[in-house]
Design a protein around this nucleic acid. Sequence first.
DNA 1: ATTAGCACTCTTCGTAATCGAGTGCTAACA
DNA 2: TGTTAGCACTCGATTACGAAGAGTGCTAAT
Lengths: 344, 344
Amino acid sequence: MLTERESLILQTIIDHFIDTARPVGSRAISKKKQINLSAATVRNVMADLEEKELLEKTHSSSGRIPSERGYRYYVDHVISPSIKQKELNIIQNTLNDNIIEMEQIVQLSAELLSQLTNYTAIILGPNVDEAKLKDIQLITLTSQTAVAILITDTGHVEHKSFTVPTGVSVTDLEKTVNILKDRLIGVPIMQLSLKLETEVYALMKKHIKEHELIFEYLQAVISYDDSVKLYVGGQTNILMQPEFRDVKKVYDVFTMLENEAEMIKLLTTETDGLHISIGNENNIEAIKDFSLITSTFRLGVDQLGTIALLGPTRMKYRKVITLLHALSREMSELLDVSRQHDLK
Amino acid sequence: MLTERESLILQTIIDHFIDTARPVGSRAISKKKQINLSAATVRNVMADLEEKELLEKTHSSSGRIPSERGYRYYVDHVISPSIKQKELNIIQNTLNDNIIEMEQIVQLSAELLSQLTNYTAIILGPNVDEAKLKDIQLITLTSQTAVAILITDTGHVEHKSFTVPTGVSVTDLEKTVNILKDRLIGVPIMQLSLKLETEVYALMKKHIKEHELIFEYLQAVISYDDSVKLYVGGQTNILMQPEFRDVKKVYDVFTMLENEAEMIKLLTTETDGLHISIGNENNIEAIKDFSLITSTFRLGVDQLGTIALLGPTRMKYRKVITLLHALSREMSELLDVSRQHDLK
DNA sequence: ATTAGCACTCTTCGTAATCGAGTGCTAACA
DNA sequence: TGTTAGCACTCGATTACGAAGAGTGCTAAT
């Protein structure tokens, strides 16, 4: 455990380092108004904090920088969240201004978040695997082309346009759609393919002439490509951080951000609430110099989305945490209210 | 005009520079097998080419690098396109493998292109302003929520989910949808808002009780947010180029790429075919060290999309040009075939 | 017309010297 | 006993300088 004074000095050092991104010397700390100690005394405390592995030196006679453990202590013990009314207003205005539309809210939030913080925002939409198919529509555009639309009970819409295979009649198509509506509505998205191959196929074989031809297309059409959606906002902000002047590091991070599969794995979580991982706590080489702060939001009763911020370990934790907190609550509320009435 | 020999040497220099990204010396050129001249002779030619402003020096005793005019000459006179069969196969396989779906094709193409070239691909989908509304669907999810779906005759699908205002009855909604279908189907997207405010509003006032309440929502629901869609693939590739080791430059470019409005302006074109702009020819500060190669593709009869590659002025023009050519033709074909049957 | 030769230019790289921010330690002080 | 002033020391950053090397332009010879 740290003494009052140690804690204060640790906090002051980290705050200062977060601002300047350079090693902090004893004199700079001693000059702060909240510190009434000489540089020499501060130096002694700093040495103690280094012994406790909360601070580090970049070389033997340099100032101190926070270690990962230092940040960890800082976020666990030192920070007291306090959201600025102004920012809360921005959030609420931006989100309420618009029609309620999940995709839009999520995308808007990502942009908003990255703008307010100057870090990179990542938002993972809720998994739709468990949503159930609500409706199927087939709309013919020309005699040769049509578009199929799938709607889930959570309001997700997926659509695919396709060429109608030659030799397939309109009545065949209509019959097919009827079978699909009859058999697939109410079925969870995840089980669509399975049902298609068994029940639907059997019925088609029985009632439809060109069933082979049509079925081939169906498999491609009746499928959700991505069961989750990923939004990234403000990647560019990474380039503004002085610690990432090295293009190599940036390259690694950007490559990771482009890799949807990995990002989804990284952000998918079962536990509710806010979570911070600092530097190597991420267990990912590419972001070993980053902190990732994640928070969850709810859509409806059991759909969980993740909203995250990626920035340097030297991050404005105080601001970021409160902001994430507020935003994820705001989002849950917005997305929930619009749907919960019917949950009776 | 250049002599045969000057042209050959210019080409050789540019090819070499494109490979190495460093100033080219006379000895290196003289050693190439297609050149049977001594270094001294090459030097004389180089001096001539410099006088014609096709080459530059980085300092008084350095090797030469191509000037923008040099590249311009190179692409205008020197290059003879020749697509590699292998690459053509990759393109065709990748694109034909899938179900025909405009958005998918476009996105896939952007990724493919950036992978094949290691530059940044940008694709601008066709403008849907002139497409006509084909159908409107309203699907209620719960008693409080619904999703509206708009489909154009070009196969674009737009959807918005929203909360049903309290006090609005189901019959009111149904009546509204009927009015919408009756009045809006067949109307060009661009004129939707206008029609809504005049004809539809008048009818609603007449027949529907809570018309004020509903109409407010309608305006938000019946609207296309983006009339064009922009896809960027392989931004990260910019980071691999040695000339962009400076983060500042990268920042400027990325910021530009994030600015959709500017990108759309940059890529929107009325003229068909392939276009190259080198360095400052772009008239954009952020990409004054880049070349932008654009090509168009057609979707249906008069919808024009743009497919572009952004890379350093030192670009593999030969490869890129042929690739773009092939891909845009391939895309046009794919997107066209699926729709043109009905154009009778 | 071409080329060998050479003086000259400018960058790059390594080494050394200097500067300064900051530390750790010791001794004095309250 | 906790705090502070003082000082020697460390190490990165900056500057200066010389040597090496790549490359040019020019001249004179072929």
